[in-house]
Design a protein around this nucleic acid. Sequence first.
DNA 1: TGGACAGATAGAGGGACTTCGATACATCGA
DNA 2: TCGATGTATCGAAGTCCCTCTATCTGTCCA
Lengths: 126, 126
Amino acid sequence: MVDILIFVNECRYPGVMEICCTPLHEGEIDELRAEAMAPVLAALADPVRLRIISMLIAAPGGTSCGCDLEAPLELSQPTVSHHLKVLREAGLVEGERRGRWVHYRVIPARLAEIADALTPELVTAS
Amino acid sequence: MVDILIFVNECRYPGVMEICCTPLHEGEIDELRAEAMAPVLAALADPVRLRIISMLIAAPGGTSCGCDLEAPLELSQPTVSHHLKVLREAGLVEGERRGRWVHYRVIPARLAEIADALTPELVTAS
DNA sequence: TGGACAGATAGAGGGACTTCGATACATCGA
DNA sequence: TCGATGTATCGAAGTCCCTCTATCTGTCCA
């Protein structure tokens, strides 16, 4: 899809083009914060893992064992285990072993952190 | 002086927001929604692109031309152009050509939609 | 009109990711 | 103790992503 919008701006000051590239960057996040935030977003940036998170939240009690995820996801056990590990290492879910099962649960605060990190910037922008 | 500014915004995922940003906590999301949401998160899941978004928001007027991003990011022009393209195709930023510069701007609503989709219902989830 | 400059594109190299089958580990029940 | 079952890890194949250099397009100014 390509949207073509045509804007017609009147510029009163011919020299204004030179101002366009004034140095900016005040209050932008630093490299460290970006490097810390990206992996968590990367953990979320997979259809399978989004579905896993959604399924965990929707599950009765907010928990589900890994074996119950394989069938609806139509993925092999090692693959599901891999995705759960990624989510675990990103701090987005936690697992609790109960006998031979591991019950997984979403950590809501972690999701909220990410959401908040994306939201406040909108205040200054709008 | 009259400048004619042309907006060319390509969205690789047409109609994606309608299905992409169903909150994760409102029942189990289906495969289509997950497939639509993941690429937008993937666009965000890169330190360079997070910094670009932050820099655009922090810039005076909320816009910056691509050339001003290269130095602080310490990346080549093609690399910065590539990242801007990814953000553009995810619908997270838009570019507006002014003369030989292209001014980029974050689309706050898009960020807000992602944030809303991630925001868990802490009351029920915790 | 030609040089200078901003931006986009093409292609390549190196690395990371997703998925699988095979296999090891952990726990339960008989 | 032994077999069954749930989970984790390993290694491989294929794909995708980030970055670069080289090059092309588009725009401005002398």
